[in-house]
Design a protein around this nucleic acid. Structure first.
Length: 492
RNA sequence: CGGGGCGUAGCGUAGCCCGGUUAUCGCGCCUGGUUUGGGACCAGGAGGUCGCAAGUUCGAAUCUUGCCGCCCCGACCA
């Protein structure tokens, strides 16, 4: 890599960009703040998508699709939500171009084709979805309504970063309607659990489950639950959110239902989402200076096989044996790539697949064939070992599981050593500047103090952990009494 | 949106301050050959609106102005 893993912001950004681009995941695009996701990156997203989708369906949700464009009048219906997103909307104002009479070969916006009402390119779909739900919900029998959408959204962010904050990004957004408050809160918490399970089990990134403070809440929500992950430079990243929306959207879009008792009531709502930002989290949590490290459970390629041969004849012999191995691996559900491309030499391939983060590499030459072994290298530790061809596939499956666990353990150890208690202001500031990570500290619960801390240190309250234990203490800034610690960090 | 940097072949770049033959080098690409256990070597070859536009000049990659785009830092960000 061009730059080494470091915590200096500019160098870390360079390191991160190199990983994304050289790892073959994505490119910068010529369109402001957008990116091109390359086939390898998209395959990774598809694997994540497939697993998440399964988990959503296992919890009773169905997929649907809603429009990209939202009429301004709909968008502004829920005031807080509209206000929260107003600053970062792209807006469609015209529907036609025409040739420019003053500029040959160029096109201009046709002033006669101005829309009467502007259309907002969705930054999130609550408005258009709740406007639709109004027509779908009449009775308690229509509830709960549990729907998810896979879509792209656009937010005109001032500053963009590959995968972490692009102007256009891919995500899923779940939008549910319930008859009771309790059921909606339960749904929001349940989906947060689904996210946490996915990110920890499949992406091997440990997370803190928590709830946001009022000032960090989603625009239009009553409560925002989140999972927070720790990156290798000591900054936190919000990896997913789940919101209890109360009856805010139901009131804004007049979504009422008749109860068993024949009473009109507003429904209770949730929304929840994760995006391609998860790929950014994956990269920054695991990768090293040699390139990406992708956990086996979501890796587009789990095993790459590289033949080492001299001349066409030996290549044919090795091809034959490798095809047997591939068949055995595939039978056990392992995704394999055999790179017998003659254009690149083995050393080049070794480096290439390390950059791409392929978990296991098998190399086989004539020497190995004679001894009935292969050379197996694991990406996470870079260890190499000789493995017998007898029972190879089963051993590879076991190795993949071991790698998955090891990647998680390493990230977990990093997270654990980067949650530090601070009991005084000086300690708090020193930790932020010298160590980073999550800092567990007492806070008096006021928005003023939270804002003041952010102002002084750029650290925000990432969350109040769900499993928090009550503990008496004094706020690190104001000195007022506090009943529990909260997690602070500088964040992406 | 403020500050900084950059834009020259597919990628990375030299040249620019101080204007002057045919625009430099590396990687990649094409052809042939030798190679292949950690990013091979030799020989030959192809590839350029120097981001766009206007201006200054006998002459502009180089100077001036405007515009466009990208990256980094900050502000902003559920």
């Amino acid at each position: 890599m061009a730059k080494e893993l470091t915590t200096r912001a500019a160098d870390y950004s360079q390191w991160y960009n190199d990983l994304v681009i050289k790892g073959g995941l994505a490119d910068h695009s010529a369109v402001r703040g957008c990116m091109v996701i390359k086939p390898y990156g998209y395959a990774l997203w598809e694997n994540m998508q497939r697993q998440l989708d399964k988990m959503f369906k296992d919890t009773g949700h169905e997929n649907a699709y809603f429009p990209l464009l939202i009429p301004k009048s709909l968008f502004e219906a829920e005031e807080k939500n509209a206000e929260g997103f107003a600053k970062e909307c792209a807006i469609v104002t015209h529907y036609r171009l025409k040739t420019d009479p003053d500029n040959k070969g160029k096109l201009m916006v046709d002033p006669d084709a101005k829309l009467e009402e502007e259309l907002i390119i969705r930054p999130t779909s609550e408005a258009v979805i709740w406007n639709t739900y109004k027509g779908w919900i009449q009775s308690y029998r229509d509830l709960p309504l549990l729907i998810n959408q896979w879509a792209n959204v656009m937010r005109w962010e001032m500053r963009t970063r590959l995968f972490l904050r692009t102007a256009e990004f891919l995500w899923q957004e779940g939008h549910t309607a319930h008859a009771t408050k309790e059921e909606a809160v339960e749904e929001a918490e349940k989906m947060l659990g689904v996210y946490a399970d996915f990110v920890e089990e499949y992406m091997a990134v440990p997370v803190i489950r928590g709830v946001k403070t009022a000032s960090e809440r989603f625009a239009g929500a009553e409560d925002t639950y989140c999972i927070e992950a720790m990156m290798q430079d000591g900054k936190a990243l919000q990896a997913g959110t789940s919101h209890f929306l109360g009856q805010n959207f139901a009131r804004a879009f007049d979504v009422q239902f008749l109860t068993k008792e024949n009473k009109q009531e507003y429904v209770w709502a949730t929304s929840w989402g994760v995006s391609t930002r998860l790929i950014g989290a994956l990269i920054m949590a695991h990768s090293d200076d040699e390139g990406l490290i992708i956990p086996p459970k979501i890796a587009p390629i789990q095993v790459v096989i590289i033949p080492i041969y001299k001349g066409e004849e030996s290549k044919a012999v090795i091809d034959g044996k490798v095809n047997e191995i591939i068949a055995e691996l595939k039978a056990l559900g392992v995704s394999v790539k055999y790179d017998n491309n003659d254009n690149n030499r083995p050393g080049w391939k070794f480096a290439e697949y390390e950059l791409k983060g392929v978990p296991v590499r098998i190399a086989m030459g004539l020497r190995d064939m004679e001894n009935k072994v292969v050379e197996v290298a694991r990406r996470d530790t870079k260890e190499k070992q000789s493995m017998s061809m007898d029972g190879l596939a089963a051993n590879i499956v076991a190795l993949l599981a071991d790698i998955q666990q090891n990647i998680y353990n390493k990230a977990k150890a990093f997270q654990t050593t980067h949650i530090t208690n601070a009991d005084s202001w000086d300690e708090f500031v020193k930790l932020l500047d010298e160590k980073g990570g999550f800092i567990s500290a007492h806070w008096d619960g006021t928005a003023e103090t939270e804002e003041a801390i952010k102002e002084k240190t750029k650290a925000t309250i990432r969350c109040i952990p769900l499993n928090n234990k009550p503990e008496d203490g004094k706020c690190i800034l104001s000195g007022n009494s506090s009943g529990q610690r909260v997690l602070f960090a500088r964040a992406y």
